[in-house]
Design a binder for these strands. Structure first.
Lengths: 114, 114
DNA sequence: TCCATGTTTAACTCAGCCGTTAAATAAGTG
DNA sequence: CACTTATTTAACGGCTGAGTTAAACATGGA
C-alpha cells in the first residue's frame, strides 16, 4: 500500500528538509522528472527515489509515467489535512484568526472537489 | 540547548500522534500539569516527559514551574513558521487562496507581536 | 538484438526515536 | 528529619528512517 495518508504521514514527510526542498522545487518549477529532482542534492538516486515514495505515501505528490520517465508534480490537497489540523487546534489559542482560516480552507475544498 | 526551533523540528514534533494529542488537550483545556497530561495515555511518565521536551524544543509549548509542579501551556507562535511554510509553498499550486492565507498570517503576527 | 538511459529494489549500516524500568532530583508536609 | 508527591535523568532494547553501493527492471534507439 503506497497510499497511507494520515496526518502523521504528512507531518513526518514534511519533517525532512530534503523532502521539503523537493516540494519547493515542484511548487515553483512545476512537474519534473525524478532524476532532475535529484540533481541539486548530494545524495544518491535511490535515496531520492525513497523520498519520493514517502511524499507519495503522504499524498503530497503525484506520479505520472511517460515511457521510462517518472514525472512528478506536487499535490496541493495533500497538505489540506495537516493544515486543517493546525487551523483547528491553533484555534484554541487564537480563536478569531483560525476560525477564519478554517473557513477559507473549506472554501478552497469546495472549489477543488477533486 | 532546549531551544532549537526549526521548521523541521516543528513538523517532526507534530508527526507523533501522542504529541498532537497533548497539544489538542492543551489547546482545548488550557494550562495543565505534566502528570495530568500523561493520564489519558497508556505510556509511562518518563515517556511523556520526553514528549514534552520535544514539544518545548519545537517551541510548541511553554513550561512554567510552580513549586514541584510543571505547568505546561501551548504556544501558538510555534506553529507559525510551519504554517507559513505550508502557505508559501502551497501557493505554487493554488496561488489565489494561499496569498490570502498568508496575508492573514501576517495580520495575526502584527496583532500579537510577542 | 544490443546497448544506453532512467528509475527502482535489495541488502546493508548507522543514527535517532520511542518505549521501558530504576534511580535521582526537587519540593511540600507531618 | 523522614516521607510522600512530582518530575526528570540514566541506561538500555527494538524499530524505523535515511544514506550507501550493487543489481535489477523498464523503455527507447541504432
Amino acid at each position: 500500500m503506497v497510499n497511507k495518508q494520515t496526518v502523521s504521514a504528512v507531518f513526518a514527510a514534511l519533517a525532512d528538509p530534503t523532502r521539503r526542498r523537493i516540494l519547493e522545487r515542484l511548487a515553483t518549477g512545476g512537474e519534473a522528472r525524478a532524476t532532475a529532482l535529484a540533481r541539486p542534492f548530494r545524495i544518491s538516486l535511490p535515496a531520492i527515489s525513497r523520498h519520493l515514495r514517502v511524499l507519495e505515501g503522504a499524498r503530497l505528490i503525484e506520479r505520472r509515467r511517460k515511457g521510462r520517465l517518472h514525472l512528478i508534480r506536487a499535490r496541493a490537497a495533500g497538505l489540506a489535512e495537516a493544515r486543517r489540523w493546525m487551523a483547528h487546534y491553533a484555534a484554541g489559542w487564537d480563536a478569531a484568526f483560525d476560525a477564519l482560516d478554517e473557513l477559507l480552507h473549506k472554501d478552497r475544498e469546495k472549489g477543488k472537489r477533486e
